[in-house]
Design a protein around this nucleic acid. Structure first.
Lengths: 230, 230
DNA sequence: CCTAATTAATTGTCAGACAATCTTATATTA
DNA sequence: TAATATAAGATTGTCTGACAATTAATTAGG
């Protein structure tokens, strides 16, 4: 009988302390990576076996994910990975356009605090590195880091958390759409404009550039065939 | 004296079918009304007794509220009603300014769909009614309905949910600040401008007016003494 | 092949248990 | 007395097992 109650605590790492947190982390990762597909049912019995936990913490973790908008809980019908209709994608995109725009503005305003300019330069260089240019996975990662760095530099913590929430359900679309050469080129133009504006401390330009970028990305996602949506 | 809970019932609110939902509802109301004060610890044993439920569903409900940002869960230290620092209030206000502005824009764009113009007129009249003008509680209710109506008319469901989340932790400030005559007058000016722009279908003006209103409200909240914050 | 009855799977909740951790009260020491 | 260590109590985190209610799957009957 595998009664693995306590996880060996890896010292020094910002790792989940609690079983609930560990489960939530695991599921979050699984959903983001696509291992749990949108619409898929998450059955308690399966997951308790898979993760070696009891139903209590598992259900708590599910409740947290539901609060984050990653899964849907329907009474007596259980939990499913959240799906998005075209309309919902559009709605979320409109929200993101406003908020990522705000984040870019804040980043431009605060670029000269602490070591933020250096931090931003690093993220920006990662985007243009050879690795990111050749490997799609690396590119997606660098792209995500670019955006999260901008928000972090802005220094609005609630905004950081909120954008994380809004991006996650859209994440899977990136793997399908982004990788034609013209798309990459366009994305690069957008990113350049954003980076330039932020480094120049031009808040208006940064916001404008970011919003334009978001609109372009959205157009790309919306051009996907119906099968990509719920 | 019975505590006055000024939490308006949403129109077609679906009744909680599940114990977890009932608990979450109850606690949400309690937090919004101030019966559970910011910073207050929510102890499982007390609440299971108070609500006649077992720990499982209670903890699930807590997890959902945590996802909504209403409470904080700290490992091994339990659940507390979320508190806000001045800085956090400012951060949330910046987000709200963008999103309520978007909502106003969308409302103006969609004011002539279905019966939305009539619906909006009703909410706007409630604001200026005698009842709202005399009783602070009624005014706060009408004010909340005014804002939620605008978002609903805009037709962006995720935005509706998000703004609900962002408003709730700020709700308690309304009871302390809003009620000097000059404040009411200023608020009325703002609201008039918003209503006029929306009814005229002028999206730009609606967004501008709403953002101005939000900035004014924020200034009011920020002018509160330190005791009002965490 | 479609509909209804039966069975299986799954969820929602409860109760009790116990170790780990945090908090408070008490005793000890500088 | 103040600071600190220690013990006692309170609270959380998790597990197990149970059972009714509901939903999904299967089989039987028309």
């Amino acid at each position: 009988m595998p009664t693995r109650t306590a996880v060996p605590k890896a010292a020094g790492e910002p790792k989940p302390v609690t079983t609930v947190e560990r489960i939530a982390d695991e599921l979050r990762r699984g959903i983001k990576s696509g291992r749990f597909a949108p619409g898929q049912r998450l059955i308690e019995a399966d997951l308790t076996r898979l993760l070696n936990v009891s139903r209590g913490p598992l259900r708590e973790a599910m409740a947290r994910l539901a609060g984050d908008g990653l899964v849907r809980i329907e009474p007596n019908r259980g939990v499913t990975v959240r799906t998005l209709t075209r309309e919902e994608v559009q709605s979320i995109a409109a929200i993101r356009e406003m908020l990522e725009g705000l984040a870019a503005r804040l980043a431009a305003e605060n670029i000269d605090r602490d070591g933020r300019r250096a931090e931003f330069r690093r993220a920006w260089q990662d985007m243009t590195s050879e690795r990111a240019r050749s490997d799609p996975g690396d590119y997606v990662d660098a792209n995500e880091r670019f955006h999260t760095t901008i928000v972090r530099i802005g220094g609005n913590a609630p905004l950081e958390q909120l954008l994380e929430q809004l991006r996650t359900p859209l994440f899977r679309f990136q793997f399908r759409s982004r990788f034609t050469m013209t798309n990459l080129a366009r994305g690069h133009q957008d990113h350049s404009a954003i980076a330039k504006a932020i480094l120049a401390g031009d808040a208006d330009a940064a916001e404008r550039a970011m919003r334009r970028h978001l609109r372009n990305s959205t157009k790309l996602i919306q051009s996907l065939p119906d099968e990509a949506f719920a």
